[in-house]
Design a protein around this nucleic acid. Structure first.
Lengths: 142, 142
DNA sequence: GAATAGCCTATTAAAATACTATGTTATTAA
DNA sequence: TTAATAACATAGTATTTTAATAGGCTATTC
């Protein structure tokens, strides 16, 4: 599955940051609101920070803030940030003993698939996820 | 990674069937030529058979034959055949305790991603893989 | 200086993945 | 008709990846 829990949790955390706008939101608040495991999510947030998607501040009023507009963060960026080796199909990334390596003959087309896949995943922005999420949440409240 | 070893091995086995045309090719021959683990591949072949992508015959002249033209078999079919739960991102397929289920708000867009992904993977046919493979193999021989 | 929050480095638990082992049945060819 | 070859079925194992937890240290604010 292309969207694993790391990606899903990261998305849900980022949605809370969109919601909270310029005000820093703590991991505790994020996890309370989204019902997520705090320690695990903290680890993911550190990945998002390293990728420059968010910034953080320590201390009692600290927390996390988006570092870009929601439409400038896409799914592929998020996946790369929390799960570096996500979309790279190629003979050689698998078991060495049963791989034909450079002579496999499939590397070319595998590379194309990888490119196409990344392109597709780059087409979904955090804005899309947020809006989709918001729509459902508003319905729930009525 | 979208293309795991199951998919890769299945592809390489199917390429040998394309090569062998209407003549049945045994698992032993496939695995000798492609340097693959026989028992494991046998298991994958049974999946391909169940999905009607290939037929098989027992006995000393037995083996496997493609059941469709190479351009009528695509990557998504192969993945479904050897690895049923491949491309279905959705809240709820992950850990229950940290999932908001139906109210997650992401199910809609996750479904769209899944559809788009399947569409993309359906666009690569066995013919594409075979031709890409052949091209490299011919170069090697010179 | 207590409380709150980020962050860093293990460690563990569970699940998926990639195989392996053994045995049975079907077909063919000597 | 029997030896050889091959599919097929079931169960088991081993490795890897994924998902999380634990504990402590550092930074900031009230």
């Amino acid at each position: 599955m292309p969207v694993n829990t790391k990606t899903e949790y990261a998305l849900r955390a980022l949605i809370e940051m969109v919601e909270s706008s310029q005000e820093a939101i703590s991991a505790r608040h994020i996890c309370d609101r989204q019902n997520l495991p705090k320690k695990y999510v903290e680890h993911l947030l550190s990945g998002l920070k390293q990728a420059d998607l968010i910034t953080s501040s320590s201390g009692s009023r600290g927390g996390y803030v988006l570092n870009r507009k929601a439409n400038e963060i896409n799914l592929q960026m998020i996946m790369d940030a929390v799960d570096d080796h996500s979309m790279d199909p190629a003979c050689g990334h698998n078991r060495d003993e049963y791989c034909l390596g450079a002579t496999c003959g499939l590397n070319g087309i595998f590379a194309k698939i990888s490119t196409d896949m990344r392109k597709l995943l780059s087409s979904y922005t955090l804005k899309d996820f947020y809006e989709s999420y918001k729509k459902v949440m508003l319905k729930e409240k009525i």
